[in-house]
């Protein structure tokens, strides 16, 4: 593999527009050289922004780096360009498994199977999603395996299940430092919040936000604007987004200023979906 990497690197140096970056990036990813793989993928994407395989490669690397939000975006982009892209369908299925949405995961795997009926990995993963299972089905996903967990499907679904039971935002970026789910009284239901210095500010923030959901609802009702759907706020050092996953509960997402407000809204939507599912399961 090392020789092949050297050869491909040399080819890419000679012809930077070449598509060998796809193979090179994948080999580097498989070897665990994620930062180098990341650079290769980004450079390739800059030259081939409409190539679905480039987005797929980048998403795999991001997933291995546990940057699941951006991985989701990249696989989503690959599917927009090529709706039957098997790698992107499998990747999104993997992410849906991680957040415990087995139904969506199965739907994506079914689409992948339609596109690649002879792919044994897809068939096996689909069987797992439908509750088939294998002897290894109780095994947890090994650390650092990243997206390989989908290609070798035994660890996926069973690993997602107990994780979801324990944590509302399992699998979402910032689950323990930038996501918080509160009830109407400001009691913490899940997630955690840390300030920029790493201090735990979960309880303080929760206390200040008690009643915000009701107040937001009253304000928009008074204005005749229907239901409130979100509250985005820009701070000197960071951004926050509040959303009501259900009537009484309140979701808070906090990120630094590098994350644009629009992107924060997308993150909040995903977190709200996870929170709603968790709240329904625990109702």
């Amino acid at each position: 593999m090392a020789d092949e990497i050297k050869t491909l690197s040399s080819q890419l140096a000679q012809d930077p527009d070449s598509l060998v970056f796809l193979r090179l990036g994948e080999l580097l990813r498989q070897k665990g050289h994620l930062d180098t793989a990341h650079r290769v993928a980004v450079t390739g994407l800059e030259r081939h922004p409409h190539l679905p395989d480039a987005h797929d490669l980048y998403a795999r690397i991001l997933a291995d780096k546990h940057d699941y939000e951006r991985a989701f975006d990249e696989w989503d982009m690959a599917l927009r360009i090529a709706p039957d892209h098997v790698g992107a369908l499998k990747g999104l299925a993997f992410l849906y498994f991680k957040v415990g949405d087995v139904q969506q995961a199965a739907a994506h795997l079914e689409a992948a199977q339609r596109a690649a009926p002879n792919d044994p990995g897809v068939a096996q993963a689909l069987a797992m999603a439908r509750g088939g299972g294998t002897e290894e089905s109780g095994a947890a996903a090994p650390e650092g395996r990243g997206t390989e967990a989908l290609i070798e499907p035994e660890p996926i679904a069973p690993a997602a299940q107990p994780l979801e039971e324990a944590r509302v935002f399992a699998g979402l970026e910032g689950a323990q430092e930038g996501l918080l789910l509160l009830d109407a009284s400001g009691r913490v239901l899940g997630g955690a919040l840390k300030d920029p210095s790493g201090g735990d500010v979960t309880d303080a923030v929760a206390a200040y936000l008690a009643g915000v959901s009701q107040e937001a609802a009253r304000t928009v009702k008074l204005l005749g604007l229907g239901k409130w759907t979100g509250l985005a706020a820009e701070g000197h050092l960071g951004h926050v987004h509040l959303a009501p996953p259900t009537g009484d509960a309140l979701l808070l997402v906090v990120r630094d200023r590098a994350v644009p407000m629009g992107r924060l809204a997308i993150i909040a939507q995903r977190a709200a979906l996870a929170a709603r599912r968790w709240l329904e399961a625990h109702a």
Partner: peptide
């Protein structure tokens, strides 16, 4: 309290405005 500083701008979104 969250360490992001005072708000510079906020935007309450609703279904109809």
């Amino acid at each position: 309290a969250a360490g992001v500083g005072a708000s510079l701008f906020w935007h309450l979104q609703a279904e109809q405005g």
